[in-house]
Design a protein around this nucleic acid. Structure first.
Lengths: 133, 133
DNA sequence: TCGCTAATGAGAACCATTACCAATAAGAAT
DNA sequence: ATTCTTATTGGTAATGGTTCTCATTAGCGA
């Protein structure tokens, strides 16, 4: 049961949740749930490819539902190195994905790698932090 | 002095070093150096853009000399999710960088972001791990 | 020498994550 | 039902990379 609750929580969330945030959300429905269970099930779900794990550099991992590399809501991240804000962007995704697929084909052949996914992030200063620096 | 030793260590290393590996290497030259100093100087060097910090998902950060986004040795990473092996690849970089620059221009305009760098990684199974799974 | 500032190092503290382990649930087979 | 097995769970302790604290030192100009 906790597993479905975790998935449902991730599905309803519009943001990228940390393990603790997921724990707190699921905790409202299953008050007895343990943090361990959350981590364990997240690991499982990542293994099946249903969930993706991200590191935005603030010391805690974030999780979000995987929409598949071509899914309608597939996006990449724009991360402010000053305030930690994360912006999902879907612009330019089509061109990127096209190039990525080409690159993946080339890389998996050359290095004999079975590529399962990619991670693309841009780092910089958001509009609120640009001035302050 | 420790700062130069750290830079020199990173320069000589062909791999991506963890803080501890850097500490051990510098320790041979400056036996009195502390781990704290390594972290502190790495943070400083990252701030100046001389060093890049990466997370390959094994719980410890890796550091490497930054060659600039168009530098001769600029590369992206291919990470085995099973054994943790990391392959640097420079193939396809030109096309990627070209598209990235275009994307950066678009993103920084649309989201009013000052983009300082990007992170591209592919995840999957390396040739040694493909069979076992 | 005196005072000031930046850099250092040892160890403690922090905190997300993982390991451990006993308890429970759900079947399947007898 | 009863036993056996297997998967899942939750509380707690441990782990370990990173950061913080704070007293010490080095450098340097006045």
């Amino acid at each position: 049961m906790p597993r479905e609750a975790i998935l449902s929580t991730l599905g309803k969330a519009s943001k990228h949740l940390s393990a603790e945030e997921i724990y707190l959300a699921v905790h409202k429905i299953y008050p007895n749930i343990g943090l361990t269970t959350v981590y364990r099930n997240l690991e499982l779900l990542i293994g099946t490819g249903l969930v993706n794990k991200f590191d935005f550099g603030d010391g805690r991992a974030r999780y979000e539902l995987s929409e598949g590399p071509m899914g309608a809501r597939h996006h990449h991240h724009l991360i402010c190195t000053n305030c930690g804000r994360v912006i999902d962007y879907t612009d330019f995704i089509n061109e990127e994905v096209e190039l990525l697929k080409k690159t993946e084909r080339g890389l998996s052949k050359k290095y004999d790698f079975r590529i399962a996914g990619h991670l693309i992030q841009f780092h910089g200063l958001c509009n609120r932090c640009k001035g302050k620096k």
